[in-house]
């Protein structure tokens, strides 16, 4: 009966109302059901690299600022000549000397 006193325009309006409502409901349900994400995923590697760069920059700045007086006293060159160090012998000769000693002990 009620439909009878509805003209075609009203039906149209009603229909679009309903679909609007439905879209809203859908949107809400979507928003609720989707896991909450804080923005997009960040590329961690990139971030770390960026951090490194920053630290490096800091470090370089620090390094550049090291000045200080250049009057560190250095030791004098020794005037005496160094004693001659025996040339390093190879193991064979050491072994040989051991045997020589042993053979001499057996005298």
């Amino acid at each position: 009966k009620a439909a009878h006193d509805m003209d075609i325009d009203k039906v149209d309006d009603l229909m679009s109302d309903i679909s609007e409502q439905r879209e809203l409901a859908q949107e809400i349900s979507d928003a609720i059901s989707k896991p909450v994400s804080y923005g997009e995923d960040f590329d961690e590697d990139e971030l770390l690299a960026e951090l490194d760069d920053l630290q490096q920059e800091e470090l370089e700045k620090d390094l550049l600022e090291i000045g200080g007086p250049e009057t560190t006293p250095l030791p004098n060159v020794p005037s005496t000549s160094l004693p001659n160090r025996p040339a390093k012998k190879d193991e064979d000769e050491d072994d040989m000397e051991g045997l020589q000693r042993w053979a001499l002990e057996a005298m």
Binding site: E91, D92, D95, G98, L99, W102, A103
Partner: peptide, 15 residues
């Protein structure tokens, strides 16, 4: 006898 001793003391193979 010397050779036996050198072997015993694990002297170098060249020697």
């Amino acid at each position: 006898v010397t050779i036996a001793r050198a072997i015993e003391l694990k002297h170098k193979a060249t020697l």
